[in-house]
Amino acid sequence: MKRSIGAICALVTLSACQPPVPDSAAGVFYDEVTGEHRNTALPPAKAVSQETIPDAPQVATIQPVVPVQTTTATPLTTTTTAKPRPTAAVNAVPPTGSVPAINSDAASIASETTAALAAASANSGELPLDASPSNPAPQVFSNPGISDENDFAAVDGRRTIEADAARRQQNKANYTVIQPTAVPVRTGDAGPNIVAYALDTKHPRGTKMHSRLKIGGASRYDKACAKFSSDEAAQRAFLEKGGPKKDRLGVDPDGDGYACKWDPSPFRVAAGN
């Protein structure tokens, strides 16, 4: 308890010894009219009343808003109401200084539509088709290449039940069944088979396989080959007369086993050999 009383007395003593803090608002005032100096923070009421107050700023007068005048839109020109104009009128240039009465999207679309109609009329010579519900349906032309046998209304006026029955009987009488027969067998009288010979041999033209006596030379070869209608006939006759080992006809002077200009390559290619 004694300590608390001592602490309170010490605080009171310190507060009494502290110097007074000057007023931050105090200052020196100089009166320009009287030349008086005073230690005060605020000027007297008379000095404040003589101060000049600036005028309030002037606000510009707001002009009333004038409503914008709207232009009545012109209806679009449809296919029904549009009329083609001559090409000269479409391509005509307006005089200098003139301003169109209507400058809007509707007028531009109407102008393009009219120009298109005029161009179509100038190209084909016929006006475009007016697609309107009130127009009659276009005429449909029948195609003579298409059969109408499945149309009962169309066939009913041309045929009767009796005529169809007679036609079925006629078709039945004309129907013939061909019985299969055995495949004919090739006989040996037809001569050598050059296709089988081409597939049995493997060497190309010009390869010497058999010995030959060079009698008569090229002139005998040309005369011998000229006697046959084709190289296939020469090869068949060559095989019949002992070929390919012997050349009694003089059609194989090089000994390759192929008469004249006969070539077995096409038969090998066809057979995949």
Rank of each mutant, 00 (worst) to 15 (best):
G125A: 05
R158Q: 14
L127P: 03
G157M: 06
L127R: 06
A131W: 08
P144T: 03
P136W: 00
E126M: 10
R167D: 09
A166L: 15
E149K: 06
V155Y: 00
D130W: 01
P144D: 03
P144Y: 01
V140C: 04
R158T: 10
S124Q: 01
F141L: 13
L129K: 12
N123T: 13
P138H: 02
A131G: 11
N123K: 14
G157F: 03
V140N: 01
E126T: 13
Q170D: 13
S142Y: 02
P138Y: 00
D156F: 09
E149M: 11
S132M: 09
L129E: 15
I146Y: 01
N135Q: 15
N135R: 11
N143C: 05
N143Q: 07
S142R: 04
P128R: 06
Q170H: 05
S147L: 07
V155T: 09
S132G: 07
Q170W: 06
A166D: 14
Q169F: 05
E126G: 07
D148W: 01
P133C: 07
F152V: 09
P133A: 07
R158S: 09
D164Q: 14
G125F: 05
G125K: 06
P128A: 10
S142G: 08
V140T: 03
D164P: 02
D156C: 11
L129M: 13
R158P: 08
G125H: 06
A153R: 04
N143F: 00
D164A: 14
R158G: 01
N143T: 02
S147H: 02
R167W: 08
D164F: 08
A153S: 12
F141A: 12
L127G: 06
I161C: 06
F141C: 03
A165G: 13
F152I: 10
P128T: 08
A163K: 10
A165T: 12
Q170A: 12
A137L: 09
P144G: 06
V155Q: 05
R158D: 07
P133R: 03
N123S: 12
R159G: 06
L127K: 11
V140F: 00
A153I: 10
D148T: 02
Q139Y: 00
R158F: 04
E149R: 04
S134F: 02
D130I: 15
L129D: 14
Q169Y: 00
S147R: 01
E126Q: 14
R167E: 12
E126L: 13
F141I: 12
P133F: 02
N150G: 14
I161Q: 12
A153T: 11
N135V: 12
D151S: 02
N123D: 13
S142L: 10
S147M: 04
N171D: 15
S147D: 10
Q169T: 14
S142P: 05
S134P: 01
N150M: 11
I146R: 03
L127A: 13
S147Q: 02
P144L: 01
N143V: 03
S132F: 04
Q169H: 06
P138N: 00
S132D: 15
A165N: 14
V155A: 02
N171G: 14
F141Y: 11
D148F: 03
D164T: 11
N135M: 13
G157D: 11
P133H: 02
G157C: 08
E162V: 12
P144F: 00
Q139N: 07
D164V: 15
R167L: 13
A137I: 04
P136E: 06
L129P: 10
N135W: 01
Q170N: 09
D164S: 13
S147N: 09
R167V: 07
